[in-house]
Write a protein that binds this DNA or RNA. Structure first.
Lengths: 271, 271
DNA sequence: GCAAATTTGTTCGTATGTATT
DNA sequence: CAATACATACGAACAAATTTG
């Protein structure tokens, strides 16, 4: 009987995970306290805590000091189409239409008013905007929600040059209803010919952990969107941070594809 | 004196992280043993281990039983272009050209011979291929490397129908040099008009942890690529798993964009 | 090839601090 | 204020993996 291979804390974690999967422990419900689990599994409290730590790092439960440990209630994931679809045309702006939201109609996106700053760009930003040393940029930062759930943190950077040439509304801490792309075309004659998204993932920093309400070893998608004008010059860089636990992305290549079937979640797949 | 705010194990982790960032502890080098750190920081071994666990979950160090703890040596990330570029034309096959590899010329991709199976597809696969109950599919699984480094795990699923109609080479455990797209067009007249990538992230399972050599709380990208034929019917589903610590993706929207500047890593950005 | 030394992994017990009810 | 529940920290012992002599 080669059964006693795994450490006890992993066995306990596995047992609790199964109870969560099979809804014996329902979403949002409270787990037994550490002392109760200690008796049930005949283990020390430290071992119980090691098991719970595993479940936390897997995003299955969360602990609240003074209260207890609770099964996390996962939200229906937000699905974002990165490539513009036929209806919205050639997208890629900053505002509400910036990223086409699948399941639109059911869900209500919202965002804080932009926090606008003029700053010397950090090195990675400057490189992507091809801003030389000493150059200044305008940054516009927003916290974005869907149905009241923290969805993403977004910061757009524009060359200061646009302000000098007349696009002063970029400095206003208010939305640009017609979209920044349209506004820049109208005021300074800069037309967007396309953009490039650079998709990465990393651990969430402290800010992001607080805003999204995720643990310290949760990961986030970071998408760098560089938009180019008719002279192939970067005209905007938008950095958006999405927690991976509630976000998915779609990229369409080719025309005339059937609509995605949104009721089909991409579940686990054998490799 | 509001200095004793953070727990000790977090302070120790922070101190070690700084030493790694400033190259005091170089890439690949060994950290002091737990007993040495225990004396240096005047803490118990368990507290030292809590600090190291934090560094592990941040991907900064790795432990090897019987040997010690080592600073992880990060590889130059692999950058994959998801949208087809002008040169390769309308991509989306299964083989080597399946995903255009940036920095090509410097790096050598390789893959194991496909492991071919005929199976009843798991539920998520069947849904996406629109395979009814009882339907069979052919799966072709490969482990893929770049410069000998584990890069991705890929499984493609084809409807069994193609085999019946004559595309028997799909059953062979060997590469299809001209590409599966071309082969299917030639043998059964099924032409690919495009594909849709569905990008998600999740924790790595045991298989993936072993193959990629990553920890149990590391995350992976999972990309579901559904390819459609001229009748808008799914003709292939490819599931590819990439560890997030060494992979990035580019999506181009619009034509005539300048080339990416590959020497510019997307570093950390203020939000 | 084997035994010893080294190093990390697991488990226990205990005590105290902090947040919530 | 008291009770409850999780968070941090210490010490100790043994197991498992690896290297060294």
């Amino acid at each position: 009987m080669a059964q006693q291979q795994q450490p006890m804390y992993q066995q306990i974690a596995e047992d609790l995970r199964k109870q969560i999967d099979t809804e014996v422990l329902k979403r949002g419900s409270q787990l037994p306290t550490e002392l109760e689990l200690r008796e049930r599994y005949d283990a020390s409290r430290n071992t119980i805590r090691d098991a719970i730590k595993r479940l936390i790092s897997q995003g299955l439960v969360e602990t609240r000091p003074g209260q207890g440990t609770f099964v996390t209630s996962k939200v229906d994931p937000f699905v974002t189409v990165i490539t513009a679809d036929a209806n919205t045309g050639f997208g890629g702006g900053e505002g509400a239409a910036y990223l086409s939201q699948v399941s639109a109609g059911h869900r209500r996106p919202s965002a804080t008013v932009p926090k606008v700053e003029v700053q010397a760009p950090p090195e990675p930003i400057a490189k992507r905007l091809r801003a030389g040393p000493g150059a200044q940029v305008v940054s516009r930062h927003q916290e974005r929600y869907i149905d009241g759930i923290p969805w993403s943190l977004q910061t757009s950077f524009y060359p200061m040059d646009f302000i000098v040439k007349g696009a002063t509304r970029l400095l206003m801490a208010e939305d640009i209803p017609e979209g920044a792309v349209r506004y820049l075309a109208d005021t300074v004659g800069v037309r967007q010919i396309g953009y490039r998204d650079w998709i990465t993932a990393r651990l969430a920093d402290d800010n992001e952990q607080r805003f999204f309400g995720i643990g310290h070893d949760s990961t986030v998608f970071v998408i760098f969107r560089t938009a180019f004008d008719q002279t192939k010059t970067p005209m905007r860089l938008t950095v958006t941070v999405f927690p991976t636990d509630r976000n998915q992305f779609i990229v369409n290549v080719g025309t005339d594809l059937p609509d995605p079937q949104y009721d089909e979640e991409p579940g686990e797949a054998a490799t």
